[in-house]
Design a protein around this nucleic acid. Structure first.
Lengths: 113, 113
DNA sequence: GTCAGGTACTTGATCAGATACAGTAGTTGG
DNA sequence: CCAACTACTGTATCTGATCAAGTACCTGAC
């Protein structure tokens, strides 16, 4: 962790990040968790509980569909599939992120004006 | 407002943004509010209540000092001055923001891996 | 063969930042 | 005079993130 503020800095982006992962292909919950953890080199872990809450929210909103894998042996895995609505929201949120990034950049650079 | 997610997208950056404004010179509360509102062209307003809560937090943490202006006439204005501790935290938070920006960029670009 | 540690999912309680809402008070412009 | 704006404050509420704990299964080391 770079610093303890990381949680709130990522706040609001969780759903979009999950949609971004699912955009490529279906994945099960823990797999998404590991991928995010590994992709950031441990700098910005998103906690399991946070992600599972996000999955529920995304399913409830119809942005993602859930189904149980058919692992005949081994532990159960719940897979998630992004919907068309989810893809639309993803694109919208990426645009919002780009705008937010620009806004914060400019606010942190405020000269006396 | 670009979209209703903006609030959570800025979340966690409020304190840093305020410190960034005060880094240049002392300002009173409402002035900071107006400057942020205007600087973003209305895209990302930070609500008054949010900012005044941030001022209290910053003062409590010793990152900012408050003092009443001496407007002999006209409404009262409470000014804020950044402390050395505040400047240090500001630099630290800007670094954190740069790291977070990179993290989110990479997470939103995750290819199947 | 058992025990630690990893995989995998879930739930309930709690925290903190952001906001809604309401209020106080002085100022300015038509 | 009165609406709109400046300027600050307090309280209650919402929500996403986290903590803490638990269930259950599997694998590898000893």
């Amino acid at each position: 962790m770079i610093d303890p503020f990381a949680a709130d800095l990522l706040r609001g982006h969780t759903d979009t990040i999950v949609l971004g992962v699912l955009r490529v292909r279906d994945r099960y919950g823990f797999e998404i968790y590991k991928q995010i953890r590994d992709a950031t080199g441990g700098d910005h872990e998103i906690k399991e509980a946070t992600l599972y809450a996000a999955y529920r929210r995304l399913v409830k909103d119809g942005l993602v569909e859930a189904y149980w894998g058919d692992e005949s042996q081994g532990g159960r895995r719940k897979y998630y599939r992004i919907t068309d609505a989810g893809r639309a929201v993803y694109r919208r949120n990426v645009d919002a992120w780009v705008a937010t990034r620009r806004t914060i950049d400019s606010l942190l650079d405020l000269k006396g004006s």
